[in-house]
Design a protein around this nucleic acid. Sequence first.
DNA 1: GTGAAATCGGAACGAATCAGTCCGATTAGA
DNA 2: TCTAATCGGACTGATTCGTTCCGATTTCAC
Lengths: 139, 139
Amino acid sequence: MRLSNLADYAVVTMCQAARHCGGGKVSATELAHESGLPAPTVQKVVSKLTSAGLLRSSRGAGGGLQLARPAAAISLADIVEAVEGPIALTACVEGEDCAVHEKCSVKPHWPIVNSALRGALADIPLTRLAQIPQVKEVA
Amino acid sequence: MRLSNLADYAVVTMCQAARHCGGGKVSATELAHESGLPAPTVQKVVSKLTSAGLLRSSRGAGGGLQLARPAAAISLADIVEAVEGPIALTACVEGEDCAVHEKCSVKPHWPIVNSALRGALADIPLTRLAQIPQVKEVA
DNA sequence: GTGAAATCGGAACGAATCAGTCCGATTAGA
DNA sequence: TCTAATCGGACTGATTCGTTCCGATTTCAC
């Protein structure tokens, strides 16, 4: 019931990347430095995000990363799915390989819960996440 | 992003227990037999559910289990929390021990997602889950 | 009152997944 | 052509999850 750390890091990394999107390419090392996360971990996250098609990577000297799509077209659900795979609370939702699937009265209700969760994640675009909300620390 | 197997088993077990609620006490072994789950696993699940106050156990010969509350007063969120602990997608939601909490622009958005998920789980009472929906298999 | 049976409760073991780290392959630039 | 910097994938260690087993407790029957 808890999001993996990698997924959490991926969200933070994507926010940083979104801020640099207008400024061209950014290296994974720089993103790690800005976010305060371990550089190798960021590299792993970046690798998954690139494979999922959310980031576009340019290799070689002077290379770097940039968003593959506009920030408005990337939702929180996309990022989570890129790292954790399809959003499915139970195995019933995507695969039907359940030992008690025939006598299971709970099965029909899982898609409802699953859709609610996915909807909540899809409702938040990257643009909103990347907004720096002029934080006012209340001491 | 996936529910643990234990939580899934807990939901199924609670459904079985709800059906036997009117008929008195049921042993964990019997629940395991009916649901087709391994008996030791059901015992572990029952143990957690009892500790959480969802089930009431009677020891000794002729003992068994019964719902501690009416089925209508038990929600899917209660069962999940009993097994998996508090529903918190990230550590930010309950504890503030995050390495980048001060510069994290994502943090304010997690409670929204978390509430949506918890609301979806809390909306489904055990009574609805226990209904046997006269399944009509479409071949 | 005693014995026996049946039950739950907690503890221990093994497996799988996840987080973190490192090195190699590739590519652009000089 | 060479160098340098980058991403990509593979490996190791650790944590958590799932499963199983055994002991403590309680009730019923005699």
